[in-house]
Design a protein around this nucleic acid. Structure first.
Lengths: 135, 135
DNA sequence: AGTAAAAGTTAACCATGGTAAACTTTGCCC
DNA sequence: GGGCAAAGTTTACCATGGTTAACTTTTACT
């Protein structure tokens, strides 16, 4: 039984901050995810070890290519799931967001493909994300 | 950020064992969930504290009323999700099972209601579960 | 009844992911 | 440029949930 992988939430948040603010600072990440700065520093160290981000001491965080790729994929899943839950299950925007956020880390690739097929859209083309996408 | 709640998996497994075998022993739970007996003993102690199960030392485990209620609800969610994923997303039985198992612990009540509405069935009436429902 | 195997528990350990409090570094402003 | 506040880090801690190894209890067989 695996534990929840919180690193995906951090990556997603960093991507959104880079895209929207141009930089991802510890404080901003902590505020968005509602965790302490100490938790962010810990997560950063773990992500650095996996080469998903770079950071010089006391400076902001930057996604590496592979980090950006992963983060983008998670955000993509989030978008697809949100749309799907709204269109197919008639969930409100908030409910869809909430459930997408919980599901994006756990669904199988096959399930994602099935949803893409059902939506019959390519959300990749309209990938512009807002900060509210985190929750 | 909360960690994964594994207690739901234990409750579900105990319910299935009670229903199918008439008893839930540590060894059986460990085998089904593929964890060590030590992990099961730990989980049992935690579930006892929450009054979801009873157990005398070295004996089998029994669900309390509230434990059975919770376990039944989780199993119900699992069934509903599995059916939904099969019917609505055309997932194979295995893929549906796998994703239902991951989703049953995290979806909101509103999402469950939406799925029930969409399926327009009352699975509660046909609640007879098999051991394969765990995964 | 004696004993060996199976079942269950305990102890010591590991990793993850969170915290508060104390500390260091940075940046800004007078 | 001195000093203070904000930002970032480190330290020491907590809980969960897993492990192996060693121990205890129960069961089952001859």
């Amino acid at each position: 039984m695996k534990h929840h992988d919180s690193s995906e939430m951090y990556l997603k948040t960093i991507l959104l901050l880079e895209n929207n603010e141009g930089h991802a600072h510890v404080k901003e990440i902590a505020d968005l995810l509602q965790v302490s700065k100490a938790s962010v520093t810990k997560a950063i160290n773990s992500l650095k070890k996996k080469d998903y981000i770079t950071q010089e001491n006391y400076g902001p965080v930057f996604l590496t290519d592979s980090g950006r790729e992963l983060a983008t994929h998670i955000l993509y899943k989030h978008k697809v799931l949100t749309k799907y839950l709204e269109l197919d299950l008639d969930l409100s925007a908030e409910e869809a967001e909430e459930n997408a956020c919980r599901m994006e880390h756990i669904i199988t690739d096959d399930m994602l493909s099935a949803i893409e097929k059902k939506l019959n859209i390519n959300i990749k083309d309209e990938m512009r994300f807002a900060l509210e996408d985190i929750k």
